[in-house]
C-alpha cells in the first residue's frame, strides 16, 4: 500500500507542475484568446534559468552559480517574463493561427539553443546534479516527495487564488472584453495590445515557474524535456478540462496526465510481453481516441467557463 501511496504522491506532484503550466495557458487562451503554441519554450527558459542559477559550479561550464533554491525560482520567473515580453512585443499583434505558428517556432528555436549552446546548457548531455530543495533532510524518497507535494499545493493554491483575484478585478474584465470584442474594447479606450501583452507575460511567467519546479523536483534537465509534444499535452489539458475556467485547467491536467499514465499501466498489464512494441502503439492510439471522444462528448470541456463577469463570456 505504501508503494501505491508513494506513486500517487509522485503522480500528484507531476500533475500540479503541469497544472501550473495549464493555468498559465488558461490566462493566455481561456481569458485573453492568445493562441500560444510555444508553451514549452517558456517552460524551458524557466527550467534552464533555475538549473543554471542553483547548480554547483563546474569548470567546463559558464554559469552554474550554486545559489539558493528560492533565488532560482525567482530568476526562472524573471527570465521567462523577460523572454515573453520581448517575444510578445514582436508577435502579440498577430492573429490566431499566425501567433500560434510564430510562438511554436520560437519554442523550437529555444530548444535548439539549449541543445547547441553547450558551454551554458551542457548541450545534449544536459545538466545533472540540480539540487533538490532540502532533499538531504529526508531519509526516503517518499519523505522528500511528500514535502515537495506540500510545497506544490501551497504554490498552486497561491497561484490559483491570485489568478482568481486578478481575473475578477477590472484588469481581468478588460481581458475578457478584448477577447470577446476587441473593437468594442478599443472603442472604450482600452489599449488592447498592451493588455494582451501583459496577459502573455504573466501566463508565460507561470510556465517558467513550472519549468523551475519541474527541474528542482527531478534534479536533471536536458533538451529532450522540451519537445513539442509537451505543448500539445498542455493544450489538451486545457481544452479537455475546460478553457476559461481555472478549476477546469487543473482538472484537465489531472485527467490528461491520468489517461497518459493509466493507459501505459493498462497496456503493460493486458498486452503479452512478446507484443510490447505493438502495445506501445496501441497505447498511443488509445490516448488519441480518448482525446477525440472527450471533445465529441464534452465539447466545452469537463467544466466549462462560468459566466462571472459578463453574460457574453459564455460562448
Amino acid at each position: 500500500m505504501i508503494g501505491i501511496f508513494s506513486y500517487l504522491v509522485f503522480f500528484a506532484c507531476i500533475v500540479l507542475i503541469l497544472g501550473v503550466m495549464t493555468l498559465g495557458l488558461n490566462l493566455q487562451w481561456g481569458y485573453t484568446g492568445l493562441f500560444n503554441a510555444g508553451v514549452v519554450g517558456f517552460y524551458a527558459i524557466g527550467a534552464y534559468a533555475h538549473a543554471i542559477l542553483v547548480t554547483a559550479p563546474r569548470p567546463d561550464l559558464i554559469g552554474n552559480f550554486g545559489l539558493p533554491w528560492i533565488v532560482g525560482i525567482a530568476g526562472a520567473m524573471a527570465a521567462s517574463a523577460l523572454a515573453a515580453w520581448i517575444i510578445g512585443l514582436a508577435t502579440i499583434r498577430l492573429r490566431g493561427d499566425y501567433l500560434a505558428i510564430a510562438t511554436f517556432g520560437i519554442a523550437t528555436t529555444i530548444q535548439l539553443v539549449t541543445l547547441n549552446w553547450d558551454s551554458l546548457t551542457g548541450g545534449a548531455q544536459g545538466l545533472p546534479a540540480i539540487p533538490r530543495p532540502l532533499s538531504t533532510w529526508f531519509g526516503s524518497p517518499l519523505g522528500f516527495n511528500l514535502f515537495y507535494l506540500g510545497l506544490l499545493i501551497a504554490i498552486v493554491g497561491l497561484v490559483y487564488w491570485a489568478l482568481e483575484r486578478i481575473l475578477r478585478s477590472p484588469w481581468g474584465r478588460v481581458l475578457k472584453a478584448i477577447r470577446e470584442d476587441e473593437t468594442a474594447a478599443i472603442a472604450l479606450g482600452k489599449s488592447a495590445q498592451s493588455f494582451r501583452l501583459q496577459a502573455f507575460v504573466l501566463g508565460s511567467t507561470l510556465m517558467g515557474l513550472a519549468g523551475a519546479l519541474y527541474v528542482s523536483f527531478i534534479g536533471f534537465v536536458s533538451p529532450f524535456d522540451f519537445l513539442p509534444i509537451l505543448t500539445f499535452q498542455i493544450w489538451a489539458m486545457l481544452i479537455v478540462g475546460g478553457s476559461g475556467n481555472n478549476k477546469g485547467a487543473l482538472l484537465g491536467a489531472l485527467t490528461i496526465w491520468g489517461i497518459w499514465a493509466a493507459s501505459g499501466v493498462l497496456i503493460a498489464k493486458l498486452v503479452p510481453p512478446a507484443y510490447a512494441a505493438q502495445g506501445g502503439a496501441v497505447q498511443v492510439i488509445l490516448i488519441g481516441l480518448l482525446l477525440v471522444a472527450s471533445l465529441l462528448f464534452r465539447p466545452r470541456g469537463l467544466i466549462g467557463e462560468v459566466p462571472v463577469v459578463s453574460r457574453h463570456a459564455d460562448d
Binding site: I14, F224, I229, L230, G280
Partner: peptide
C-alpha cells in the same frame, strides 16, 4: 516493460 515514448516525463 513500459514505453517511455521518448518523452522524459
Amino acid at each position: 516493460l513500459r514505453d517511455d515514448q521518448g518523452q522524459p516525463t
